[in-house]
Design a protein around this nucleic acid. Structure first.
Length: 429
RNA sequence: GUGAGCGUCGCUCAGCGGCCUAGGGCGUCAGGCUGUGAACCUGAAGGUCGAGGGUUCGAAUCCCUCCGCUCACCCCA
């Protein structure tokens, strides 16, 4: 019997790595440009961290967590999201005493027990940023700007940004109540799926895919109409700050989406999502918002926070759409070809010296005809073949062959320095 | 958890009005060239046709069950 990667997981093979490396490098580069510093947290945490952080009633906690008991009897859970663990680390390491805001980012795998489909996996990767200790809308907008620049530097085109404000812990229940009342009046117009949903989470009716519900959602009570005066001002400031970004990012044509709601309980005030415009299904590339009550819920000092998470698999999917078939070479510069035992010994020495000086060098399988060894060099798309045979050993030279269409070759000295000089490579040390 | 589509060499596909001793392309390996690659030519290896059961003289082809994958819903990155 053969083994397969577990459902919803995937091997990332060498040919796909360039996309991943580009994403990881861009993430770090952009985050650090904004003053964010990297943090890594464990792949699993106390189960109760997520129950309290994400919310007992959310789908993620209810049915999507990889929870297990370890041999000591502790209940642990593979992290389904990154914000709660970072908050835990913030509290645990006394970051409250760091200069505010504390800016952190992470690139790590997440785990959710879901049925896989396009853009959704059981093990997936997120790039996330979190900024703690600053309530100003400026930081919300900074985080949005960071996300936008990140996607732009990846070369993704045709993105749309949607924003909304869902208010604070006082505004939200009022809005929710109004929403319930509204939908109660129109319950008979709802499809059955959504009538069930009305009980569980009325907010979800807003982004329902049922046509009847969408029509109703158009006229449903809007969260922004239930903001307190102060929060209303805050929201207006947020939008004005977003407008000021447009001089740098003319393509950033954001839209206020009153139906934008998010899946975790901890969100407050500003929430946002970025997706390819016109996309359907599991298409959100990056989503986040403010979460001012979370730190307190996890037992820390009241500390405001704001951030986002981006799904790396979905980014790869979109990158592949834009730039298909990226055949990546091996990056090997020199393949050393030896003919005979004496030559083999010399070639091992020269190859070692080349590598020690930073030149990617592979020795062709020994003991095979030169033709095979050159075929091997070609299959690695190496730039040069360094040929050492009996003739070369006797005369104390090596043959360096350029593996291009012409395949021209020249005779050089039988030592590293001659090779380095010939391939124009500056020694690393 | 619900629904739909699909499972044929490593990859990508043909064959699916039953007879196939299951093919092609790519890749791999070997030879053409025992010291010169990629091109080209020749050849080889590689498949219990997802698994099990049924119909039939005969099944990759028809039927059933299961498993897996994919897509969609729920929900989310």
């Amino acid at each position: 019997m053969a083994f397969n990667a577990p459902r919803g997981t995937a091997d990332i093979l060498p040919d796909e790595q360039p996309h991943w490396e580009l994403i990881r490098r861009t993430a770090a580069s952009v985050a650090e440009r904004f003053g964010y510093r990297r943090i890594d947290t464990p792949a699993f945490e106390d189960t109760s961290l997520f129950k309290r952080g994400v919310g007992e009633e959310t789908d993620v906690v209810q049915k999507e967590m990889y929870t297990f008991e370890d041999l000591g009897g502790d209940s642990l859970t593979l992290r389904p999201e990154g914000t709660a663990p970072v908050c835990r680390a913030y509290i645990e390491h006394g970051m409250a005493s760091w200069p505010k805001p504390v800016r952190l980012y992470y690139v790590e795998p997440m785990f959710r027990y879901e049925r896989p489909q396009a853009g959704r996996f059981r093990q997936f990767h997120q790039f996330g940023v979190e900024a703690f200790g600053d309530t100003s809308p400026q930081v919300d907008v900074e985080v949005i700007e960071l996300g936008w620049l990140f996607l732009r530097e990846l070369g993704l085109k045709g993105l749309s940004l949607r924003v909304n404000s869902i208010g604070d812990s006082i505004d939200r229940p009022r809005h929710l109540q109004a929403l319930r009342a509204y939908y109660a009046q129109h319950a008979d117009e709802l499809p059955k799926v959504d009538r069930d949903r009305l009980q569980r989470s009325p907010l979800r009716l807003l982004d329902s895919k049922e046509p009847e519900s969408q029509a109703l959602a158009e006229r449903a009570p809007r969260s922004v109409d239930y903001l307190s005066d102060a929060n209303r001002v805050r929201w207006d400031q947020t939008l004005r700050l977003l407008d000021s970004l447009k001089s740098v990012y003319p393509e950033m044509d954001y839209a206020v989406d009153h139906r934008l709601v998010r899946g975790f309980d901890y969100y407050t005030h500003t929430v946002f999502e970025i997706e390819p415009s016109g996309a359907q299904g599991q298409s959100t590339l990056l989503g986040g918002g403010r979460y001012d009550g979370l730190m307190e819920a996890l037992g820390g000092q009241p500390t405001p926070g704001t951030g986002f998470a981006a799904g790396l698999e979905r980014l790869v999917l979109n990158l592949r759409k834009q730039t298909p078939a990226e055949s990546s070479g091996t990056g090997v510069q020199v393949v050393a070809v030896a003919l005979g035992d004496a030559a083999s010994q010399k070639v091992v020495e020269i190859a070692a010296a080349l590598r020690a000086r930073g030149v990617a060098t592979v020795i062709a399988p020994s003991g095979r005809p030169m033709r095979d060894q050159l075929r091997f060099a070609n299959s690695l798309s190496a730039k040069y073949a360094l040929i050492v045979g009996q003739k070369e050993i006797e005369r104390g030279v090596a043959t360096l062959k350029l593996m291009d269409a012409e395949g021209g070759q020249s005779e050089i000295g039988l030592d590293v320095h001659a090779v380095l000089a010939a391939i124009g490579q500056r020694a690393a040390h």
